[in-house]
Structure formats: structure tokens, C-alpha cells
Computed example of a mutant assay.
Amino acid sequence: MVRWWNGIGWSDVATPAGPGVTTGTGEQTLRPPRPVWQPAGPAATRSRVPWVVGAVVAAVVVLVVGVVLGTSGGRTGDPGPTGVAGPTATGPTFAPGTVQIVDNQAGIAYPFLGDGWYQYVLSPPLETTSVAGQYFVTQDTVPDGGEFIAQITSGPVAEGYGWTGPGSAQATVDTLTESVRANYYPGPNEAEVLRDEAVTVDGAPGWIREFVLSWDNPGYDATGERAALLVVDTGRSAPALLYLSIPNTHAELYGVIDRVVEAVDVL
């Protein structure tokens, strides 16, 4: 019987280990301190996953969020494979038949993109209090350590990012944009905004900002990325953040951003 480590704590229940499962006694090394974003001053040069660089987890890392098998929510189409290329992530993926990722903490659900995407089991980013979603590795090692990834993740927005209640989604997106640019991308970088507007997500008010980042830093396969931040007022104390990012090494996948955003359900 084993308990599962999700990067933050242990599961409340024990389950049979099953075939092929390697077990350990827990987390054997400490994670490096999480970066602290400062709204003023020069942006820090960081990899896309600074919150887990150097961490070694001896326990099995498994499901962080619930997934729906078959159909769930208001949209039930088969997302189909995305044909991703490049380095592959090592870690769990979703069960066969999964078509939707359900983030009960954030209060939203959105499509699982299929083969080549892995279940996101890394620690939560600074901007959310928990994390759910999917990702794959696009570069195994970057100059400042860690990996570079494509990701579609979600979570409740943490305190201190501009949320003061209904009507503050745009201000929240403003602050979140500064934070992700400073913490997860090589600097300096430039941003071209593609859209910045109020949206209605499954009947709920929200704000989306989609932009293209560019940089010129040696040691990175990507020289830019298309990203989108969608904040949704789900009626809870904290809004949901959906963070979508595709490096330009995989520009053929830019279309999944609109595809996922258009299919978000509010729980």
C-alpha cells in the first residue's frame, strides 16, 4: 500500500502500489526557495519552471487533480492528438478516454489535448495556490537550470495579484502578466499584445490577454513564445487563472490556445 506525493503533501488515503510502481520513503532533498517576484526593478532571468529546479522526489508523483473519463461538462468532442515533437516529459499522463481536465480547486474544466501531453505534477507556480493541467518538455536543459516547457495549467489566483472582487479581472491580468514575464522567461524580453479584452466564459465574466514574447538569449532553443492569461470570475473568493504557453519551437501548436479557451467550462 502506498500514499501519493503531489509535490506539496501526501494523499489522505493509501492504495495498492500496482505493477511497475517504484516506492520510496518521501522527499529526500529540499526544493530551492521559490522565487519572489518584485513589481519594480529589472526582471529576473529564469527558466519556465523555477519552482521545481533541482528537486528530487523519491516518492511516486501522481494525480494532482481529478480528471473525467469519457465526457464531462458541456463540451464532449474528442480533442485528438496534437503531434508534439521534441523532448518528452517523464511522468504520468491521463487515463485512456480522458477528454477534459477538471480543476475543482479553481472551479473550471477544459480540454485534455491528447497524446504527447502529460499530466502536470510540478509544484504550483507563484501566481496560484494550487495547480492542475498538462504540459510537455520542449528543451531538457536551459542555461539557468531546469527545463523549458509548453503548458496549459490552471489554479485559483493567489493573494496579492490585484483581485478585489467582481470587476477587477483586468487589473489582475495586468499584475499576473508582469509576474510571469519576470519569473518564467529569459530577460530582457519584449511583448506584443494580440488581444486584451473582456470575455464571457461559460456565462461567467473574465478577462483574457494573449501576447507574443520574444528574446535573444544564447542557450535557449526558443526565441519566443505565444502565451495567454485568462482570469475567470467563478463566484468564488479567488478567480480562476488559465495559463497557456507554447514556445515558438512548436509554433504549429499555437492554435490549441484558442481551442482550449473556447471550450472552458465553469464548474
Rank of each mutant, 00 (worst) to 15 (best):
L267R: 13
T141R: 15
E159K: 06
E197V: 03
Q170W: 00
P156H: 10
W163H: 10
T76W: 08
E262T: 14
A44Q: 15
A106E: 05
A43E: 12
R34Q: 14
L176C: 05
L63C: 06
I257R: 00
L69D: 09
Q38A: 08
T23W: 08
I149N: 01
P166G: 04
V99K: 15
L194N: 02
V231C: 02
Y220D: 07
A182R: 03
G116T: 02
V121M: 03
A227E: 07
L63W: 11
A14V: 00
P33H: 11
G9H: 13
V36K: 07
A182T: 12
R259W: 12
G116N: 02
A158V: 09
A89W: 07
P50Y: 07
A89D: 01
G86K: 13
I257T: 03
T90G: 01
G24P: 03
S237D: 15
G167D: 02
W207Y: 15
G116L: 01
V60C: 04
L126W: 02
V173D: 03
N6F: 02
T175S: 13
G167K: 05
P247M: 04
P143R: 10
L30I: 08
G165V: 01
P239L: 06
V60H: 08
P186E: 08
P156L: 10
N104W: 12
G86Q: 09
W5S: 02
S154N: 05
P92V: 14
F136K: 03
V68Q: 14
H250D: 11
G66T: 11
G203Y: 13
V180N: 04
G54S: 13
A171N: 03
G24L: 07
T45R: 10
T29I: 12
